[in-house]
Amino acid sequence: MTKILVIEDEKIIGEMISMYLTDEEFSVCRVESGQEGIDAISSFAPDVILLDLMLPDMDGIELCEKVRAYSDTPIIIISMNSKVNERVRALNAGADDYLVKPFSMQELKARIGVAVRRYKPSAPAAETDVRAYVAAGAAMEPMSANHGITLDLQKRLLAVHGQPIDTTFSEFELMKLLFQYPGRVFTRDELINTLRGIDSYVNDRAIDVHITNLRKKLELNPKEPHFIKTVWGVGYKLNLE
């Protein structure tokens, strides 16, 4: 049974979400503060975290960053704030999706399903060519030592010259796709679909933020990248030559 941790201090909203997800046969744990959320992540071990940005003891973005420092569990932000810069800020902090209140419970369930499929690659894949490999979780040979990057799908580990690199859930999913098709140019729309699925709030700017962060972690000189290349007017590709 999929376990959902709801970190939401508004009692009515929290109870509505919890009741709906319980009726849909999810296992739900609801807490009302950031510290309770941190404790529940350890004790409850959720498959997906629903995180409100306005908490009584800490900012939701701060909590997202703290969680992402030691866990790659998918985080879906639920917030009243619909501004694009706030969404980008949340994604940059390590969130994997962003839902604006009020939202449809059916949409929430669908977003959770997408997050679970991405986090558990062995789950059935979505029927799209670009995402089929990512969702299937097929074994991948370690990359040649000539370029120094290794991707371990089973351990969800990205390493550069043998040194593990911390990545967010979304950053790792992008690297999985790029590694499967080195040299192929992916449009931003294709990358958005890979991470979010249909009807996502993620936009072009969010993809650019993820790519910028990956470059900082992978490249000797992020301003003159060797691995993740920009194809102006189109998107990005991975260079392993």
Rank of each mutant, 00 (worst) to 15 (best):
L55C: 07
D47V: 08
I17C: 02
M19G: 00
P56K: 05
R30K: 14
M58C: 12
D47L: 07
E24Y: 05
C29F: 11
Y20C: 03
P56Y: 11
F44Q: 07
S43Q: 14
L21E: 09
T22Q: 06
V48L: 02
C29I: 06
L21I: 07
E36V: 00
T22S: 08
M58P: 01
M54E: 15
C29V: 12
P46F: 06
V31K: 02
F26P: 01
S33V: 04
D57E: 14
P56L: 09
I17E: 05
S43C: 11
L53V: 15
E25M: 03
P46T: 05
E36I: 00
I41Q: 04
M54P: 00
M19D: 14
S18R: 11
D52N: 15
V48P: 01
G34N: 12
M19C: 01
T22C: 01
Y20V: 07
C29M: 14
E32C: 14
L50I: 07
P46D: 04
V31A: 02
R30D: 01
D39I: 09
D57I: 14
L50M: 09
S33E: 08
L53R: 13
R30A: 11
V31S: 03
I41F: 02
S42L: 14
I38E: 13
E25K: 10
Y20G: 02
T22K: 09
D52P: 06
D23S: 12
V31I: 05
S33F: 05
P56S: 10
E36Y: 02
Y20Q: 03
L21R: 04
Y20W: 10
Q35R: 14
L53F: 14
C29R: 13
M58Y: 05
D39Q: 13
L55G: 05
S33L: 04
E24H: 13
S43F: 13
V48W: 01
L21C: 08
V31T: 05
E24M: 15
G34R: 09
T22G: 04
I38T: 14
L53M: 15
V48A: 01
S42P: 00
D23A: 13
I49V: 15
I38S: 10
L55Y: 09
P46V: 07
T22E: 08
A45H: 12
F44V: 11
L50F: 06
V48S: 01
I49M: 03
Y20E: 09
P56Q: 11
M19P: 00
L53A: 14
L21V: 08
F44G: 05
L55V: 10
P46R: 04
G34Y: 12
L55N: 07
V48D: 02
L55D: 08
V31G: 02
V48I: 03
Y20T: 09
G37N: 08
E32N: 15
S42H: 15
D39A: 13
S18M: 09
V31Q: 03
M58R: 09
T22Y: 00
P46E: 04
R30P: 01
L21Y: 05
G34C: 12
F44I: 13
V48E: 01
M19N: 12
V28I: 14
L51P: 03
I49G: 02
L51C: 06
S27L: 15
P56F: 08
A45G: 00
D39W: 00
L50R: 05
G34L: 10
D52I: 09
